[in-house]
Write a protein that binds this DNA or RNA. Structure first.
Length: 352
DNA sequence: AACAGTAGCAACCGCCATGGG
DNA sequence: GCCCATGGCGGTTGCTACTGT
């Protein structure tokens, strides 16, 4: 369609002159833009309506914020991209004064490269595999292998923080399937999204698995709120209907993948071998044992990690009240409540 | 100074959804 | 139900300025 509207008539293309901008601004501010196709004629421009619309939206609108993106804006874009994928228009809605085109350009020119240089796959937000990271980013190898991205939830009502990883979210998503066999006969933990919307603040954190020191960047921007806000905008489902459950069985999955268990090693690529190698290179003895759950674990110092290279925490069901099911639930929740492919959550989570 | 390579960004392209006739 | 016009969006292109050699 875009091509048709311009090819039918002789229209100017390319960069806009100041005179053209002036004409368009004058017309829009006095008459508005009820129909973009009629704007060029009425404004005295030899452009197609689509081009006028784009020029206005991306450049001439008075409420646009020009200039560099702030650190907070950058953080917001990364976090929203992790959830929404390349939905630039949706991401831009959460950045006042920024356009989808601007966000997209900023992503492609800056953020993408920055994430890659830090060892992250900009598409999935997961760590690049060690091979890829080593091949393309020798200088950042150490950093890429030691850090991963996690969410920190700040519960304002409790004045405390809780942390979850993207792995954890994805793992929990699998467990949240309405077809899960684990839900039969097991108590469910119903949640309220609206309460979380009001009480939780979310940020991103880098976590050093060796020192066990999370490095929180900021807690200013509420991406959890953003997610839910997005849902309200894009679906007709109301909040009260969007609730789901977690079960004790599924908690086990969360446990294994929780923030403290994230090592930064590729779980799909025998992470334990890499983990083992690193520890042994540093003179630490690694022992193969069986833990309380009869799972094979590799023990080094006081920590255990499984065959996927994930550090295993001995959390039991008694710890359940300490874990924020509600956040994971709400963060993962889709109005339709159907999950089929864990790996594609970022792209599909908000499709319904 | 001249040229090549690169980065940033404005603008275009083409597809899709929607709504009116 | 079909066709068409239109708006919206994400991907891509191409121009310009900058940087390195």
């Amino acid at each position: 369609m875009g091509q048709h509207c311009c090819s039918k008539q002789k229209v100017k293309r390319g960069l806009w002159s100041p005179e053209e901008d002036e004409k368009l601004i004058r017309h829009i501010t006095t008459h508005g833009h009820t129909c973009w196709s009629s704007v060029p004629k009425l404004a005295g421009l030899h452009r197609c309506g689509k081009s006028c619309r784009l020029r206005w939206i991306n450049y001439l609108r008075p409420d646009l914020k020009r200039g560099c993106f702030s650190e907070q804006e950058e953080r917001t874009i990364i976090d929203l991209h992790r959830i929404l994928g390349n939905r630039w228009a949706q991401i831009a809605k959460h950045l006042p004064g920024r356009t989808d085109n601007e966000v997209k350009n900023f992503w492609n020119s800056c953020i993408k490269k920055k994430l890659i240089s830090q060892g992250f796959d900009p598409n999935t937000h997961n760590l690049l595999s060690r091979t890829t990271s080593t091949t393309h980013h020798q200088n950042n190898k150490k950093k890429a292998n030691n850090y991963t991205s996690v969410f920190t939830i700040y519960e304002t009502s409790l004045s405390s923080t809780k942390q979850v990883s993207m792995d954890m979210i994805k793992a929990s998503l699998a467990a949240l399937s309405t077809n899960s066999p684990h839900t039969n006969g097991v108590p469910e933990y119903q949640t309220s999204v609206s309460r979380l919307y009001e009480s939780s603040v979310l940020t991103s954190t880098a976590y050093n698995y060796k020192n066990h020191v999370p490095t929180t960047t900021n807690i200013e921007n509420s991406n959890l709120a953003t997610c839910i806000d997005y849902k309200n905008q894009s679906t007709s489902n109301n909040l009260s209907s969007s609730s789901s459950c977690l079960t004790p069985t599924e908690f086990g999955i969360i446990n294994e993948n929780c923030m403290w268990a994230v090592t930064g090693f590729d779980p799909n690529n025998n992470g334990h071998e890499e983990m083992q190698l690193v520890h042994e290179q540093e003179g630490e003895q690694v022992q193969l044992q069986e833990n309380i759950c009869q799972e094979e674990v590799y023990k080094v110092n006081d920590h255990e990690f499984n065959k996927n290279g994930r550090i295993v925490e001995n959390i039991t069901y008694d710890d359940r009240p300490n874990f924020d099911f509600e956040f994971v639930d709400s963060a993962l929740m889709m109005p339709c409540g159907i999950y089929t492919n864990v790996n594609s959550i970022d792209q599909r989570a908000w499709d319904c």
